[in-house]
């Protein structure tokens, strides 16, 4: 089991490669999930990459990252437990990444695979469309990274989260991050911007996802993520069964919220 103190993670994407630790008291961060690293380096999507509305952010970063080889040559050394995040553009790339990572997997308290990025043309969200293929992928990744605490990050598109959870559980995975951003579109000054929605708008969707998964698979470790901006939000996630609370977009509003929620979680999980 993953024992994070507090059970609070800074989520992949907004947390970058740990930059926010310069602004946050480490005692209140259970772990940082690093930015998703892909097989090949990715320059990301052209700007504009982000927009906001009253209750949401829309991002189209496009998994900008140095690629797995560069990442492994220069692993981030953070002052808090670290969870790596990986994503492939194809079935084979996921497997290649797992093989490359295997020798260094012990550097991380867990390894997350991102099966849900909405901002890439290949891989990401599309990998779960073929259920049987995804089931085989989960099994093969589990076999390669047999010693790692494996977490599947999924969204609400492609398949029901409870079905995704069942496949992950049966393949021997340890946890899930629920949920990734949801595909969205806004029209800004006459221009269409596609991206992934996050922020407060995501919270009821993510709460339902956590609820559905935890009541069926109580032994799956679930990081609840989506619209956590306050201690009250964190309480709601604990109520529906989340084992840990993920903070993403709220970092952009106030990094100090991590300390408030972390302090609360340390108190209630003492």
């Amino acid at each position: 089991m993953l024992e994070l103190k507090p059970p609070l993670v800074l989520l992949s994407g907004p947390a970058g490669f740990g930059e926010y630790l310069k602004l946050i008291d480490h005692r209140f961060v259970g772990a940082v999930v690093l930015k998703t690293v892909t097989f090949k380096p990715r320059g990301g999507n052209p700007p504009p990459r982000m927009a906001e509305g009253p209750f949401f952010l829309l991002n189209s970063i496009g998994l900008e990252n140095p690629g797995v080889l560069s990442f492994l040559e220069d692993l981030p050394k953070l002052a808090v437990p670290t969870i790596a995040s990986f994503g492939g553009e194809t079935y084979e790339e996921y497997l290649e990444i797992a093989k490359l990572v295997k020798d260094k997997a012990k550097e991380f308290v867990a390894v997350e695979f991102n099966f849900s990025c909405p901002n890439v043309k290949e891989g990401g969200l599309t990998i779960v469309r073929d259920k049987e293929k995804w089931r085989r992928l989960l099994v093969e990744l589990r076999e390669i990274l047999d010693d790692s605490f494996l977490i599947a990050k999924v969204g609400i598109e492609g398949l029901f989260v409870e079905d995704a959870a069942e496949m992950a559980y049966q393949a021997g995975w340890n946890g899930m991050t629920l949920v990734n951003t949801v595909r969205g579109l806004i029209v800004d000054k006459g221009k269409i911007l596609l991206g992934g929605l996050s922020g407060p708008i995501l919270k009821p969707i993510a709460l339902r996802a956590v609820y559905e998964v935890k009541r069926r698979f109580p032994n799956l470790y679930v990081i609840g993520s989506g619209g956590v901006y306050s201690v009250e939000d964190a309480k709601d996630y604990l109520m529906v069964g989340a084992d840990a609370i993920g903070i993403g977009s709220a970092l952009f509003k106030d990094p100090g919220i991590v300390e408030e929620i972390g302090r609360y979680l340390l108190e209630v999980r003492r």
């Binding site: 926010y20 052209p46 970063i61």
Partner: peptide, 22 residues
Amino acid sequence: EEYMACGIGACKSCATLTNFGI
């Protein structure tokens, strides 16, 4: 000036195209 969310290099939202890439 670009739209910016973190200001510290974490989020990668303030990308701008240059002759040396993003």
